[in-house]
């Protein structure tokens, strides 16, 4: 089969997986990781006042 067709098919599957992952909130894992990371900086930045 044509390589480009395979490439486009893989690309579509990948984008679908990404979209689905984000729609079910898997990116939160990365976000929570960022959270811990930004905690490392927390002392150096003004904190938002909790409501």
């Amino acid at each position: 089969m044509n390589r480009r067709a395979i490439a486009i098919a893989i690309l579509c599957i990948g984008l679908a997986a990404l979209a689905f992952g984000i729609s079910i909130g898997q990116h939160e894992i990365v976000r929570s990781w960022l959270q811990v990371f930004s905690d490392a900086y927390a002392p150096f930045f003004p904190q938002p006042i909790p409501p």
Binding site: A7, I10, L11, I13, G14, L15, A16, A17, L18, A19, F20, G21, I22, I24, Q26, H27, I29, V30
Partner: peptide, 15 residues
Amino acid sequence: IFPYIAVGVILVVPI
């Protein structure tokens, strides 16, 4: 847990 984001990235970026 099926890692959708990771799988998505591994399919998209190298393409």
